[in-house]
Structure formats: C-alpha cells, structure tokens
Amino acid sequence: MHSNSQDGCAALAQESRRLIRQGGHTGPTAGLAPGCVQANLMILPDSLAGEFLLFCQRNPKPCPLLAVTEPGQYTVPALGRDIDIRKDVPKYRVWRHGELVAEPADLDAVWRDDLVTFVIGCSFSFEEALLADGIDVRHISMGVNVPMYRSSIPTAGTRSLHGPLVVSMRPMKAKDAIRAIQITSRFPSVHGAPVHLGDPSLIGIRDIHQPDYGDPVAVHADEIPVFWACGVTPQAVIHTVKPEFSITHAPGHMLITDVGNTSLASF
C-alpha cells in the first residue's frame, strides 16, 4: 500500500468510522469517505481459518484478501490505525449453523478470542474509477444498494468449503461495458474484470429484477447487464456449508479503511 494514499484517506476514513461507531450512520456505506478503500468481512473461528484462507487463494476474484488478523485480534493496523473490527461496520450479520440469527450494530456481545477476521476487497473501489470516466453506476445514481445474485458458477471448493459464486450487477451501454472491462482490469485486488456480460440466465439468474442481496435497479432497453465477482460470496458459502459460528458484514455495510483506492490499481 502506498503511504501517501493512506495519509490522504486517513482523516476521512477515521471520521466515517467514528460516525459509525457512535451510531450516527447505520445504513450502507457507499459514498462515505470518497477515495478510501471499503472492504467485506468474513470472521470465522480459528479452527476454520486455515481452510478459508485456502478457499480465498483458490477464488481470488470473489475473495481478494486485503488483510488477515491473528485469532482474537480486532485491530488491523495495516488498513487503519484505529480500526476496531467489533464496532466499525454499520451492520453485521451473525450466523449459527448457516442460519442468520442477528444483525447487530456491534460485536461486543458475540466476540470471541478464537475469531480470525478476513478483510476482503470490495467493488466500491473500482466504481469510483468508473464514475471518474463518466460511466453511470446505476445503483449509485438511484441511491440504492448494488444488486447481487447467487449464480450457477461454482467456486473452487476446499475439503469442506464450497458454494456458488455471488455476482454484483451494473447495467451499461455496450460501449461503456467495454470501457468498464478495461478500467476494472486494473483492480485485481477488488474483483478485477467482469465474469459475465449479457443474458443473466446463462449464469443461472432467473429474474434480474429480483436480486438475492441488495436492491433491484433499472436496466434500460439499450443496456446489457454486466456482472462482477462479489465479496458476498462467503455468505453464500456459509448458507451452503453451515459452519457452527461465523460473522460477516451486512451486504453494502462495509469496513472503511485508511487506504486510498488509487493504491490498489495494478497499472
């Protein structure tokens, strides 16, 4: 990570995290701390952490790792000086045996000393680059959460972790979709290039207007849907595998880091 990018984002990110910690922001984090990397969370007992690390290595597009903590550690110094994993996300999801049991605003009541946090790159980073190039990002212009779908594309599983690839969708005119491929290819640590363009049924999506996560958006007659691998994929794995205990962010409710988006561009 480039320190100058982090310094430029630090004040914005820290103010946003403070606001979230105090309950002043409880909704999705798109648009908060512009220019700063936002991230997905997957929090698992140490007994599953090694296998999940292998899962991420086998599935770098949906699960691009930005950081991994030691068991029980709730700070992530590489991504922000004052980050507290237990308090800095507006809404968490607590899962037991694959079932969603709570959506708390902090993890004080459920935190354990054996928990390992995986911080995973998020498409909010490349959306900023798309907007800077004049490409409409529909869920942002509509003020809603990005639509996400469980696809029929399988992830590369491990001994006990497997499940479908979750994809996020942004409708675009064909010329903008071509440009979006070029732009997002520069950001492999936040999902990179799209995994599919066009007919949703070819990747198992029956109704583009009924996402599994997030909100539906308008797809105009002169547009095609463009699909990227999504960091909500681990939540589909939880649903499939049903581990004893796990925690994630609620979709769209991300961890804001001190890292600048530009520092993630590979070229």
Rank of each mutant, 00 (worst) to 15 (best):
M1R: 00
H2Q: 07
C9W: 08
C9A: 04
A11E: 15
G23T: 06
G31M: 12
L32Q: 10
Q38V: 07
Q38E: 08
L41T: 05
L44R: 04
L54M: 11
C56T: 12
K61R: 10
C63V: 05
L65E: 07
E70P: 00
P90S: 15
Y92G: 01
R93W: 04
V94M: 02
H97F: 12
A102S: 15
L107K: 09
L115K: 08
V116D: 02
F118H: 09
G121V: 03
C122Q: 05
L131K: 10
V144Y: 08
N145C: 12
S151D: 05
L165S: 01
P171W: 14
K173L: 14
I178C: 08
T184V: 05
S185W: 11
P194L: 05
G198V: 15
G198P: 13
G198Y: 13
I205E: 11
I205F: 14
H209V: 00
P211W: 04
G214Q: 01
P216G: 11
A218F: 00
V219Y: 12
H220P: 00
D222L: 01
E223G: 05
I224H: 05
P225A: 11
P225F: 06
Q235T: 02
T240G: 04
K242Y: 04
F245R: 08
T248K: 10
T248L: 15
D258C: 01
S263E: 12
S266G: 00
